[in-house]
Write a protein that binds this DNA or RNA. Structure first.
Lengths: 241, 241
DNA sequence: CGGTTGTTTGACGCAGTTCAAGCGGAGTGG
DNA sequence: CCACTCCGCTTGAACTGCGTCAAACAACCG
């Protein structure tokens, strides 16, 4: 089935067709969100779980003085606020980077469903653990990798995930991020991101224009970023790494 | 009950006495680990879940060239590798900072137990989500906070967690970390950590000697680190924040 | 075609790193 | 009980990766 949710969850456990359909059926309503608008906001107490159907989104936290840190990027098929389902409130925001289409499942029916289907619970739990693994890898980057390694690593990660989601082919995928957004996700300044991207282009590893990322030398880029994709727990079929 | 596991899990859901006892009973064997030794190692496929009973531990990832990033600190009551239970393999290591005592529960009986007790599953799921929330906060620190804010924030976090676990009193708790370990957790160099700690001492916020952290000005330290403890999801009773 | 948003460039400054050396306390062995 | 060693802490000086500021440029959009 081509539904992005199916593709993703299939990699995380042995769900029956029935489990999948039951879960998918929870997402009853649909909403479009314009670029730059928040899908879930810090401090809110959401009453639904949000599934991203179309577009790029990002998880972020803002400091009172305007600094902000992007915590993760999300692509179609990602569930955006399981945290809210388990805790009731959000300690961070999720914003639309492109115009996005999202779908909502009410918390109460969702909880009932998970109660009845332990394997479904486990798969969603694993999903949140993969998010954790990505957080950890980003921490390594921000704490211990130089700007160039950090950027190269991020590009590898995004590409690998897009490929697994069927959103990339032939070394090419969407990457609709401004350099400011890249900077906020990497803990760098816009100016520095700009200069390092030029380096990566000059080396011939990538081109990045108009929101399209082309990887010309996957091995080179992987090497530059020290990327090993195991932590993403992608299905073996699409193991670019 | 004074068991550190009970204290912790009680804050994460409405577990029955029975649930708690059943979970605790899973941890059948006990092992002592010397300081500096790994409790779980990256790449391993552990067959048990490890509960920390005594001592400080840290989660970390090492880069091939010797750089390393500490990802989180752990105190008694923390379960160290639920990731391994859900995925089978570890993408990072956990090491003992002090001499530690740990207890092990076999994966297979653990899985059975969770199958039978959905509320227990949910509580452990929440536990991993709190870890995630801490990761996110650390990312904000490493990406967007200056050294002084970062260190102050970490000290607040550790103290708040120790207090909730009954390991702190009167603004004082154990912090058996070398400055090298602090540096590796904050993405800084040892030298800089040293200098910034002196600043914090000079301001009168803290003293830190022989592994004992004394906080003299909680509000001041909180302010310096921009700390708000909500993300830790501690029980309201011990909400220092 | 003017306004807005994103990219690029240059010059300069600083927070934090690196290197190198000295210091102090704790453990060990003679 | 002292000498030796190891490890962690501290200091100073020089260096640099990256940030900041400021301005020009390019692309998009109504």
């Amino acid at each position: 089935m081509s539904d992005p949710l199916y593709l993703k969850l299939a990699a995380l456990g042995r769900l029956t067709e029935d489990d999948l359909r039951a879960l998918r059926a929870q997402f009853t309503t649909t909403r479009d969100v314009a670029a730059g608008i928040d899908i879930v906001r810090e401090g809110e107490r959401p009453s639904t779980v949000v599934l991203l159907l179309k577009g790029f989104a990002c998880r972020y936290k803002a400091l009172p003085d305007g600094r902000r840190q992007i915590l993760s990027f999300h692509i179609p098929g990602d569930i955006l606020d399981l945290h809210g389902l388990l805790f009731g409130d959000m300690d961070h925001s999720v914003g639309a980077i492109q115009p996005c289409r999202v779908s909502m499942a009410p918390h109460d029916t969702m909880r009932e469903l998970l109660e009845r289907r332990p394997e479904l619970s486990r798969v969603l739990w694993r999903d949140t653990l993969v998010d954790s693994a990505v957080f950890r890898e980003w921490m390594v980057g921000m704490g211990r990798r130089h700007a160039l390694e950090r950027i190269a690593h991020l590009l590898c990660e995004v590409y690998a995930r897009c490929e697994a989601a069927g959103l990339a082919k032939l070394g090419q995928c969407d990457l609709p991020l401004t350099q400011a957004e890249l900077a906020d996700s990497l803990g760098l300044s816009v100016v520095h991101v700009n200069r390092v991207l030029q380096q990566l282009r000059a080396t011939g590893f990538i081109t990045l224009r108009r929101g399209i990322l082309r990887i010309h030398d996957w091995e080179g880029l992987k090497g530059a970023g020290g990327f090993h994709g195991g932590y993403l727990h992608l299905p073996a079929s699409s193991q670019v790494a």
